[in-house]
Amino acid sequence: MVADWPSSPSDSDLEELDRFLRTHAKEEDLLLDGVHGFLTALAIGPTPAKPEEWLPEILHEPFADADEGERVLTLLARLNDAIAPELETGTYEPILGELEMDEGHPAFTARGWCEGFSRGIDLRAPSWEGRLGNDSELMELLGPIIALAIDDGVFESDAEFAPLGEDDYDECLAQIPQAVGAVADYWRDHPLSAEEQAAPRDEGSLTPPRRRGGRWVH
């Protein structure tokens, strides 16, 4: 019997959610690309997060009415619940931003997605940081995402990194699905030990994400 997995959100679903988030977004709030990166980090990370943990990171104002609330929560659940099946079937794609260039041609940017991904890591900071400090394999798997995040100013690094060229940036974008899948496999194959699960959280351990620009494109 074929598993009854949730389908990915339709383009109209994404457009509706994008409009809602943009209408209610303040300076540092996540937009659709950031929400997708945020939920992705939680979906592939060391321990699952319940909606009551991640919804406050996305929604910051009361809904206009019950109907709006039900609809927005449904769209967010659909976006979240589709990530694992998409990884399982090899159909996962990050929701990226699109920037208008001087030449008039749009360019994709992972800045918003990476910012959301960083916030997802921050929600489980002790687990991620403890493992990253002791296992270079995880850092290597995150390589394309880290490169994009540093290039777009989402992550800060003490080491000096040359800016990515256009071809290198596009190559890193293309590697996001593979990197996300590999990290998901890593945490499944190397779960947290009892000692790691008991590690206290260091609230000031991660650099706060920076504001991003662009608009979403699926």
Rank of each mutant, 00 (worst) to 15 (best):
L21C: 08
N134S: 15
A107R: 13
L87C: 04
D202Y: 04
S10H: 07
V217R: 15
L138Y: 09
I121Y: 10
C172H: 02
D135Q: 08
I95P: 03
D81P: 01
A194S: 07
T89D: 13
W113D: 03
E93Q: 15
P6L: 07
A41C: 07
L17W: 08
M139R: 15
I146T: 15
P200T: 03
E160W: 15
W187V: 05
P48G: 06
P191A: 06
P163T: 06
L206E: 07
P208D: 01
E93W: 05
A159C: 09
R188E: 10
I146Y: 10
G153F: 01
L30V: 11
D151N: 15
D158G: 15
E57I: 00
A3M: 14
V183I: 15
E100D: 13
G90M: 07
V2H: 13
L21P: 09
E16D: 14
I83E: 04
P191H: 06
H24K: 14
G37V: 03
L142V: 09
L87M: 07
P209C: 05
H36N: 11
D13P: 10
D11S: 13
G120W: 03
A194C: 01
G34N: 08
R119A: 09
A41T: 09
L30I: 10
R210L: 03
R119F: 04
L173C: 00
R212K: 07
E98N: 05
E28T: 11
C114I: 04
E137I: 14
N80H: 10
A82S: 15
P177D: 00
Y169C: 01
T47L: 12
N134F: 04
M1G: 13
L148D: 00
E68I: 05
L79M: 14
A174V: 00
L87W: 05
L132T: 08
D102S: 09
F20W: 15
T91N: 03
D13I: 09
A43I: 03
K50D: 11
L59F: 08
A41R: 09
D65V: 06
E166H: 07
A49Y: 02
L17G: 07
T207F: 11
S205W: 02
G120T: 06
E196W: 03
G112E: 04
R124L: 11
L17V: 09
F38V: 05
A66H: 12
D189S: 14
E196A: 12
G153M: 01
V180L: 08
E115Q: 14
L55V: 12
L99M: 12
L138Q: 07
G45R: 10
A149K: 03
S7M: 12
S127T: 10
R78T: 12
H105L: 13
Y186E: 07
A174L: 00
H218C: 09
E86Q: 15
A82I: 02
E160F: 14
H24G: 02
Q197A: 06
I121L: 15
P9Q: 09
R124H: 10
A149I: 02
D11G: 06
F155H: 09
A84V: 11
H105C: 02
F38T: 05
C114W: 02
V154A: 11
Q178T: 00
L164Q: 02
W5L: 13
A198M: 02
S12G: 03
D122G: 12
E61G: 04
A198E: 06
A179K: 00
E160L: 13
F155R: 13
R78E: 09
W5P: 01
C172S: 03
R71F: 01
D29C: 01
T40L: 04
L17C: 06
W5R: 11
L79W: 11
F108C: 01
D4H: 14
V180W: 05
